[in-house]
Write a protein that binds this DNA or RNA. Structure first.
Lengths: 274, 274
DNA sequence: GTAATAGTGTCTTTCAGACAGTATAGG
DNA sequence: CCTATACTGTCTGAAAGACACTATTAC
């Protein structure tokens, strides 16, 4: 780190050498969640290159840092890199997802190649067509999270069919799932998993899939409608009843609330996590 | 990125050149909050080096990435770097703080020297002695957050006395404050701001300082004691009454709950953030 | 004494959850 | 017909907020 102390910021920056640093790489990894076949699924890629060739991993890649130096705005933003990775694998245009930063993972040795800092993002998507493999990937697929046997505290796991994820991606996915479960409680993000217009039952299916437990249909219905700004009625109903009978359901679109008051508290969490 | 496809992971890693990447630096910045003189304060340093010499900033510095290559576990973990920075400025031993990762900031141009990815951490500290300046800093001080005129949505600001922070540290601090306000609701983290044993009034003062509004003393008292695992009684009381009279208060220590059920909801947030 | 604070009792309102019941659809 | 589902009514218990009140200390 240069310490010759020029007088002005301009002089200082002109004489600054960014290559004096040890090599580090910055990547983004994206946990993309959706509901398919009534269960929570995550977008994974089958790695086609080393390291971890042949293992499943979260889609991700290196952030384009650019080669400019002082003051030039080169390279891409972290969120932009996440959107790019997501678009590569799903073939969807960016605007369709809710995307938020999850956490950053930088423990030495987590990538065998070099020191890698991974900024993980969390995306919520409505039901999408089958993914396509991007570069460096042999395949991309939606995988039920319950089939991954993650060591977290949610219900509905099948530890038998564990598929080992590359790097520390099991940990990242686990953190993403916990964030998703938590955010359903106090934000209207469940609506990011459905396409408009949607029924209250479809919304309930989202909660049941993410939380991994059945909810009381009648109380859920009343609760959703009583939270201001969660959903708003379109005045329409579905064309037909459900697949196994029942009346036509009313249709709703997303409301304008960004926080749910009061929140939808997750059941089964009553007696404290001590 | 080499693409000559050796057969095994070992061969691949041996031929991998980490220096083929554009230069990026990774830093940690720490938002350290405490309660002093009944108000929420943040630890800032007065920068003694360029860029932004003479401006106040969050304490932070470059992560030691080490120069090892394939597979070697060199360099320091991100959290370790945050603890190191914190210890440098406060002179306190690490274990006394609650520390958690806040978010990562990597917009191109946010640091005029080069592309810098900053992993921000959030620390909660009990009342501590005056800080000392570490390297690269002319001074370090506890600064009331209300005096910084941040553009956030909390009460009790004085936009007149704005002190401009270096880099995008105003944004980072603002995010940290919002995280702190939110975490007081559903976790027992308020206890990280007081020294054991503490009184319910001291705990209430923490909530009032962080949330920036007075709370109903009687209801707060009953509420805290009714949440299982939040605090546990020591059986002792204070030696004397308060500075302006009143009976001796009972003393408590931290309970074993990690989540508050039911939560202490923040008032004034009732009508939704639409 | 007065003023301030610690802590308790109790009432009202709100909300979550349980359960019953009605109406509408598919088969 | 039977069954499944959408939605409403109503009751109970938990909890938040408001207010009144007592007890204990500093001054």
């Amino acid at each position: 780190m240069p310490e010759h102390e020029p007088g002005t910021e301009e002089e200082f920056l002109a004489s600054y050498d960014p290559r004096a640093f040890d090599p580090v790489a910055v990547t983004v990894d994206v946990v993309t969640l959706t509901i398919r076949d009534g269960e929570l699924q995550v977008l994974l890629v089958l790695r086609g290159v080393l390291p971890f060739r042949g293992a499943w991993a979260l889609p991700g890649g290196f952030v384009k840092t650019g080669s400019g130096t002082a003051g030039e705005r080169v390279g891409e933003d972290l969120a932009a890199a996440a959107i790019r990775e997501l678009a590569e694998e799903t073939g969807q245009q960016p605007g369709r997802f809710h995307l938020e930063q999850l956490a950053t993972y930088g423990t030495p040795g987590r990538d065998p190649r070099m020191r890698v800092i991974s900024v993980a993002y969390l995306a919520f998507a409505p039901e999408l067509p089958d993914p396509r493999a991007g570069s460096d990937a042999q395949a991309a697929a939606w995988v039920p999270v319950g089939s991954l046997g993650l060591a977290d505290n949610a219900a509905g796991q099948r530890p038998g069919t564990t598929r080992k994820l590359a790097f520390d991606h099991a940990r990242i996915l686990s953190d993403g799932l916990e964030r998703a479960r938590s955010k359903l409680e106090y934000t209207p993000l469940a609506t990011a998993f459905v396409t408009e217009p949607f029924t209250i039952s479809e919304l309930r299916a989202v909660y049941e899939a993410v939380w991994g437990e059945p909810l009381h249909a009648a109380n859920f219905h009343r609760k959703v409608l009583s939270v201001p700004g969660f959903v708003e009625s379109t005045g329409e109903t579905t064309e037909t009843g459900g697949p196994r009978g029942g009346p036509r359901a009313r249709l709703y679109r997303r409301g304008d609330a960004r926080l749910l008051h009061p929140a939808l508290l997750r059941p089964g969490l009553e007696e404290g996590i001590r």
